[in-house]
Amino acid sequence: MTLWPKSVRSHVKTGHDREIIAAYPFRSAAPTSLWASLIDGASQNLAFAGYTNYFLWQQHPRLGARLKAKADAGARIRFLVGDPESDVTRKREEVEGVPLTVSTRIKITLDALEKMGECRGVEARFSDQHIALSVFQFDDQMLVTPHIASLLGDESPMLHLRRLEDDGLYDRFAGHVTALWESSRPIEL
């Protein structure tokens, strides 16, 4: 016996895909207001596991002050970036072949974090294991960008997810960030 006719099942998400709120063919196709609402709406856990995280500082005015206020209110904020001196970073720079190098973009993020000053609740670490996948976590929502070959991050697709079940898409990507964090090297800001 089928409770949901095929026509309804084809228009209503009933499986694991219901955690997908939206899909964008390019990260840059997602409105800046989406990022702002996720950043501003999160109060407990924010993780920025992008290899450079560079674009955040360019697109969000006063991001450092906004994050510092969240940390002061008790939020845990983590930045996972690539090591600007690593072989992985150098190889990626060769692939991209653009004037604003990967190492420079990482250093812009490190500089912005340093300008925030010492702030309990804000941590940063180096990892080269997430070169092909960026995960940005905002409490029970996240944005995930699987990077495509030689394209820049903003040219790769992005998924907007909301946690709805145990071991669903959200939990799988959150586990990925946790594993990367645990194997990464602390950065002294």
Rank of each mutant, 00 (worst) to 15 (best):
D83S: 10
K68H: 01
S150L: 08
G64A: 13
V102P: 10
W57G: 13
P157L: 02
D128T: 06
A73W: 00
I108L: 05
D111T: 11
L169Y: 14
D83H: 10
M116C: 15
S103C: 01
L110I: 14
Y170F: 12
I77N: 09
T109L: 15
R162N: 07
L152I: 11
I148K: 05
S127E: 12
E85Y: 07
D111W: 10
N45P: 03
D171C: 00
R92F: 00
D166L: 00
H130M: 15
D167T: 00
L110Q: 15
G82P: 13
I77F: 09
C119Y: 02
L143V: 10
P99D: 13
Q58W: 11
L152H: 15
P84G: 13
L63W: 01
S150D: 13
T52W: 07
D166E: 07
R125A: 14
T52I: 09
Q141E: 15
L169V: 08
D40Y: 01
F136G: 04
S103N: 03
Q59C: 02
K68V: 06
L113H: 06
Y54W: 13
T104V: 05
T109R: 13
M158T: 01
H160L: 05
P61G: 11
R66H: 07
L133T: 11
R120S: 15
G41V: 02
L46S: 14
A47T: 10
A112D: 09
P146T: 09
D128H: 05
L67E: 07
L159C: 10
L38H: 02
A71K: 10
S150E: 12
F138P: 02
L143G: 02
A69L: 11
